[in-house]
Computed example of a mutant assay.
Amino acid sequence: MAAITGIAILGAGLFAKEAHLPALVALGGDAPPLIAVYSRSEKSARELSDAAVASGLAPAPAIYHDGDPSTDLDALLARSDIAAVVVVLPITTQPSIILKALAAGKHVLSEKPVAPTVAEGISLINTYNEKYKKNLVWRVAENFEAEPGFRAAGEAIAAGKIGKVTFFKAAVTNHIDVDNKYYKTPWRTIPDYQGGFLLDGGVHTVGALRTMLPEPLTHLSSFASLNHEYLKPHDTIHAVAKAGAHFHGIVELSFGFPTKSTPSSDAFVITGTEGWMTVNFAKLEGTGSVLRIVIKHAVKVEGKPTEEVEEVVDVPQKGVEAEFASFFDAVVGKETLALGDPLEALKDVAFIQAGLNSGGELVDLGKLVSEGK
């Protein structure tokens, strides 16, 4: 298969600078050249181009921005040397830009969530399947799904390290104040999409569960609330969720915690018939960020537990790098690790949407994904 001629990044926000550029640098020669960057303003596009050079990418990517037909998005998409684009734009802006890029014949990797609502996601996926899927690759960049640590945890569960899964817990709490660098992003400060940070960040937690659990989440009953007015429309969800035919769990998502420290140290706890597992992000001196997997397995003699064996595995955090590598492989037809399926990403949005609207009623997630309501 032919190599990818070049790529462009559409959007010049924090995540493009702090995650996407380092991932391209880390991939080195396995990543196609970054030929161009686009933002609505010339200033932010130039800053991203400068950041690319500072990070070690060369030559400097060309700058495209609104306001001049010779340097706007249409001009960028008209370039024949750009085969694929990475879309890192506000949640409500992304669907139209994804379709615009596909219509221009570009492969697309778009940041999560797949769309602001399930209905919009269904429409976007249907259009892609009907008009573009035959010739173009579209993937959704959900870096928790791509994270090697979450995938290793899922593989350990599938291998029976904790027996048959019986229940689980996901407790992800965050303290977001008005000085938070992500809160200061204008489209997050006054969100025009459901859930605010719960949609933007909550899909990560659901994506991680989707990656680790042996069967998909099928139903939930939940309540949502707003505890800090500046985090409107909601900042907290508590849900009881069912997965597959035989197990269930609790999902706590909050971006409105009162302090940076939280009483719960374990983000993910998955319990089985023969043991349990925790999965948490950790920072190790000299190693950087890792996902730490702790497995406790009960060794039985004559059917009775006699001792507990502990296994600890630290997996370097490389989710963005992994999702880029998978996308580039898919574009050239040699994909070995299938990541970023838009329909799977839609399931993450469905969980958040159901969590916001359940009001204690049971929601069938499969029906929501198929019908959009």
Rank of each mutant, 00 (worst) to 15 (best):
F268Q: 04
N135H: 05
S265R: 10
G163Q: 00
F268C: 05
I122K: 09
R79I: 03
L76G: 05
T306N: 07
A45L: 05
H297C: 06
V251M: 10
M277Y: 02
S39G: 07
R79H: 07
T189C: 10
L365R: 00
S221G: 07
Y132L: 04
S49V: 01
N126Q: 07
N174Q: 13
V108R: 13
V294F: 04
A62I: 06
I250N: 11
A26S: 13
P113A: 02
A83E: 15
N174I: 03
L89Y: 14
A245V: 13
S370G: 15
P95V: 02
K131R: 12
H234L: 13
T287D: 15
E145M: 13
T262M: 13
Y132T: 04
Y183I: 07
S44T: 11
V88G: 09
K260I: 13
G28I: 04
K112P: 12
I35A: 09
P191F: 00
H234A: 13
V251S: 12
L209N: 03
E42K: 15
F255L: 07
Y38S: 04
G319K: 14
P342E: 13
K161A: 04
V369S: 05
S123W: 14
H219M: 04
L346W: 00
T273L: 04
A152I: 05
L226G: 14
Y132S: 08
K17C: 02
P32R: 11
T259R: 10
G288C: 08
A60Y: 06
G366N: 10
G303N: 01
L365I: 10
L220V: 05
A60F: 01
F167N: 09
V301I: 09
G196T: 01
K134W: 03
L337V: 11
D50L: 08
A241M: 12
H65I: 00
H175K: 14
S123F: 14
E311L: 12
T218I: 02
V203M: 02
P186R: 08
S265K: 15
I295R: 15
H175F: 15
E371I: 00
F327I: 03
Q353R: 08
A325V: 07
G286A: 03
G28L: 11
E344M: 12
K100A: 02
K300H: 03
G256D: 02
G366R: 14
K106P: 00
F167I: 09
G249I: 08
I293W: 01
